[in-house]
């Protein structure tokens, strides 16, 4: 079964992950621009990061047959940091126009401050100007209140609800969001947030309409195979393959295709991988014979 992994910070993962993901059926991965584990202190480090997830990371993924896309944003954590927030906003209009950028995100709220709201709304406007959907990070602390506040802000902004993906949902938030008309994301973690068994119960109760699952794998304790692991649990629970395919392929493809930049014909096959090619002189081979890989 083909899988579109719609949220993984591959910047912080190793090539073994890419290989295992490809073998587990992951055909495409979307990398949201986010925090890097510690705060940055100048806009230059954002620019280099944006260039990396648009360039090197895309190349690296293709080496393992995986199509790589990304989103661009000032994340809510660093929206609070006056050393970078305005300067990052100034470069975002350029980066939101790049090929491979399928949405504005992760935007949203984290600590739920006034500054986070200010930059969240500015980026919703940017998304509207660019005709891009938005990927929303919802708070891990005081989640229900944060969800409700984000929904109010989104409603008032006038952005089309089908252009909105509310991520990091759980059993509580689904009750709030299921009738809004937006997409809902669930980040499946090994131990926290949401796990494959809980996700299976949600699917059995609520179905798969406008629902998306992801691993949100990053530099922490996380697993980029959580989507295929969840697929296995869903099958064991006798969820029909057609519903599972809707959840892990059709829905994320439909959501991000609203950008107008997702070539669905390209997705029919793995990304072209020529392991002898380099990106700016760098390869992933480290001296190994590509014909043996």
């Amino acid at each position: 079964m083909r899988i579109f992994e719609p949220h993984a910070h591959m910047f912080s993962r190793v090539t073994d992950d890419y290989e295992r993901m490809a073998l587990a059926g992951i055909r495409a991965v979307l990398e949201p621009a986010f925090w890097l584990g510690q705060n940055r202190t100048s806009v230059g480090t954002f620019i280099d990061y944006f260039d990396t997830i648009l360039g090197w990371e895309r190349f690296r993924a293709a080496q393992f047959g995986i199509h790589h896309y990304c989103t661009m944003a000032l994340n809510p954590r660093e929206a609070n940091d006056d050393r970078v927030n305005d300067d990052v906003m100034a470069v975002l209009p350029r980066y939101c126009q790049k090929d491979g950028v399928l949405a504005v995100g992760e935007i949203g709220l984290d600590d739920q401050t006034a500054k986070e709201e200010k930059y969240f709304l500015a980026q919703v406007e940017l998304a509207k100007e660019c005709g891009l959907p938005i990927l929303i990070h919802t708070p891990h602390r005081d989640k229900k209140k944060g969800f409700e506040r984000i929904i109010d802000l989104v409603r008032d902004s006038g952005i089309a609800m089908e252009h909105v993906l509310l991520d990091h949902g759980n059993e509580e938030t689904i009750k709030v969001t299921r009738d809004l008309g937006c997409y809902q994301g669930f980040s499946i973690y090994p131990f926290t947030k949401m796990d494959p068994n809980r996700m299976t119960r949600i699917v059995l109760e609520y179905g798969v309409e406008r629902m998306i699952i992801n691993s949100a794998a990053d530099w922490g304790v996380s697993d980029p195979l959580m989507v295929p692991r969840t697929v296995m649990k869903l099958r064991q629970a006798r969820v029909p393959d057609s519903d599972i395919e809707t959840l892990v392929w059709d829905n994320p493809v439909a959501f991000f295709a609203q950008s107008g930049r997702l070539d669905t014909a390209e997705l029919e096959w793995p990304a072209t991988a020529n392991l002898r090619e380099t990106y700016e002189g760098n390869a992933v081979l480290r001296g190994q014979d590509p014909d043996q890989m």
């Binding site: 209009p93 350029r94 126009q97 790049k98 090929d99 930049r261």
Partner: peptide
């Protein structure tokens, strides 16, 4: 120009 250039190829 930096806003327009990314759109050229597509």
């Amino acid at each position: 120009l930096p806003i327009l250039f990314p759109q050229l190829a597509r």
